[in-house]
Amino acid sequence: MAKSIDVSDLNIYYGDFLAVEGVNMTIRAKAVTAFIGPSGCGKSTFLRTLNRMHEVIPGARVEGKVMVSGQSLYDPAIDPVAVRRQIGMVFQRPNPFPTMSIYDNVIAGSKLNAKKMKRSEADAIVEKSLRGANLWNEVKDRLDKPGMSLSGGQQQRLCIARAIAVEPEVLLMDEPCSALDPISTSAIEDLIHELKSEYTIVIVTHNMQQAARVSDETGFFNLKAAGQPGHLVEFNPTTKMFTNPDEPSTEAYISGRFG
């Protein structure tokens, strides 16, 4: 079910401010695509346009096209809510709903759509999703505990479980490990490897090594100059990107000369 995403000539605005300019790329299905670049270059902003979370911010808008299996995401006939159901998202900081138990957190998205769900059905979704997020064994005995009672890494995996419980086709991850310790980070990275057999995964990361470890393809974003909009410098398979990049500025960034 995973889908590829075609982006063409995408400009992203906050009000009158052009934040990201002229992005063209094709994100492959069932692969991990990573975005790297210095902070403030618009990679998270770009990520959020892929499931129309960008327009949640007042005044934010986009120009250009994002096509998912032949349909333009920004067509007026498209319901942003439907888009977000099929393109799930995991955020920088883990954000389980604080008033809900682990169980309720996982089932939250599915509950929205089903008028009534049988208990057994719900149980099945919860177990499947938590197993999918490699969290089942750690929490199966305390599903009724608050989601906030978990450790940071567990919370983030809970958020991933919550995102995959609605069976999206694409999973966007916005620096999912930046708030986590190294052990939790490697747990999430392992999980990303497993998830890519079923989902198209797009991940924004600060950490170039992480991009190199988890991704199949990498996009490098940069600012032309301070105050200028961000843009996509290079988009290539990860191995090529980290060994023999096309652009000199990519090489400069990867080798640590700036950023």
């Binding site: 949640v56 809510v81 008033t99 929205l112 609605v166």
Partner: peptide, 26 residues
């Protein structure tokens, strides 16, 4: 918290569902 609202939106909640999921409990 914006994070909770966005979590609900990213699950494909409508605005009203987002309010019920994230705003009211909080």
């Amino acid at each position: 918290p914006r994070l909770h609202e966005e979590a609900a939106m990213a699950l494909g909640a409508t605005r009203w569902e987002m309010i019920r999921l994230a705003v009211f409990p909080y």
